[in-house]
Design a protein around this nucleic acid. Structure first.
Lengths: 255, 255
DNA sequence: CAGGACTATTGGTATGACCATATTGCTGGT
DNA sequence: ACCAGCAATATGGTCATACCAATAGTCCTG
């Protein structure tokens, strides 16, 4: 029996599964209902990363809709970074590991669309990265500090053979955020340093100059953390970030 | 001539939009190419918010693909918050105004999927909202302050007829962020107060108790801003947010 | 046993049709 | 002349079927 055939008898019972408890009467857009159902399964952990969803054709039967509908649902989920679609035999939709990169991309998209300047984004970043310094000072473990030092070492090596890049700098800042032992903070900072900053053309030209001096400041910062000197650490980080900010927007130098 | 008929001669031209410089040879997925094209048009401002894209059937012709393909592309763009689709005559795809709500949803998704606690998210929010206080003190205009006072008034009215809600509180905090006159900061704070916080069940139970006291603190905060007293303002806001944090995670009361 | 050809699985796209909805505008009655 | 109501139309949403393309496994051949 095809979907078309049984439509008359069903009377649009409106699934009722996905939107739980008085689901909005919407019901216009079956594909959205499917999106919600699958999203829910993933959020509830009943589908774990790397799990494979049934093939499109199987899903058609299970949801009792056409393949087009299933496909549109999968596309939305894919765009949202919840699943990843591979073609070929043994292909299909796989639950993807939550990645800050996806969010970063979404952020970058919207920021590029809004009339946001690099200066504004940089300032927001400054606020956040400065704000976490006291937390870092308080919570950084010896392991954290060792990891930071290790990154500093690699940066100095990179300076020698001139392979220093913004990626290395980003790695440092993300690791600092990780010292808060707060996954939310870490993820946000990651988002900042991911596609977001990279998408700002202005940010790139700043990289080369940042090299030596930035690296030095990184090391001083770690020392301050190790001494649990919040004021000093904050001051160093402020100068460090401010220099980036000035480079990004020399004109907009406010205050 | 149908699409099918001319397929042989086409030969895939690989977008190059999204991944910048040497786009992956992928090109398996015409719909993605369309997504990139439209996305580019929007980013370049050649399609402005509220502009209406051609109807699906028109786009089919212009891109020379089938309707399914166009639809999948539109779905992806819609999921990314770049366009909004309305049905009916005079319906179609409209370039949407960049909204922080979308970003917030993306963030909320990511956070919900990760094993993040409400306490972590709240702490991240604290860091950010505290960090902007000095900027607010510096940049708040008389109009900003007047707007904040007006919100305070409405909150007190709401207290009388017991209609005080988290929404009102959120409005205040977002308006405070707007005082930085930095769109990026405003957008981030909006994201925090939008789908993100709302998705945290724990946050809701905190609302009723916050009412009177929260309202008072709001007003004190505005006064401090008016006096340009950064220290005082920060102190008030810290206490205010800390109270929320304690409610959200009574157990995790750190520091 | 190695390597290439075959086959099955699965996503990607094309077509053509029909339904649901919302806007527009006409039409007839007051 | 005005308004309620219905028909026409534009547009997205879905369905069914068919075929193409990519990939992994299998089998056959040398």
């Amino acid at each position: 029996m095809t979907v078309e055939q049984r439509k008359s008898a069903s009377g649009r019972a409106g699934s009722g599964a996905a939107a739980g408890l008085f689901s909005p009467v919407s019901a216009v857009r079956v594909s959205q209902v499917i999106v919600d159902q699958i999203r829910l399964l993933i959020q509830q952990g009943r589908l774990k990363p790397d799990d494979r969803l049934p093939s499109e054709r199987d899903l058609c039967e299970q949801f009792d809709v056409s393949r087009v509908t299933v496909r549109e649902a999968l596309r939305v989920l894919e765009a949202g970074g919840l699943i990843e679609i591979r073609v070929g035999a043994r292909g299909g939709a796989f639950v993807s590991t939550p990645s800050s990169a996806r969010v970063g991309e979404g952020l970058a998209d919207l920021l590029k669309l809004s009339p946001l300047t690099a200066a504004e984004v940089t300032e927001a970043r400054m606020v956040f990265e400065l704000g976490i310094v006291p937390i870092v000072v308080e919570r950084a473990t010896p392991e954290d500090i060792a990891a930071l030092k290790e990154i500093c070492d690699r940066q100095q090596d990179a300076l020698k053979d001139e392979s220093y890049s913004m990626t290395l700098s980003a790695e440092f800042h993300v690791r600092v955020a990780a010292c808060t032992h707060n996954a939310a903070i870490e993820m946000l900072v990651k988002s900042f340093h991911g596609p977001l900053l990279m998408s700002l053309e202005e940010a790139k030209v700043a990289a080369p100059v940042m090299g030596r001096r930035g690296s030095t400041e990184h090391r001083e910062f770690v020392d301050a953390i190790e001494r649990r000197d919040a004021d000093q650490a904050t001051a160093i980080m402020r100068a460090h970030l401010q220099r980036t900010a000035d480079r990004v927007a020399p004109d907009t130098a406010e205050c």
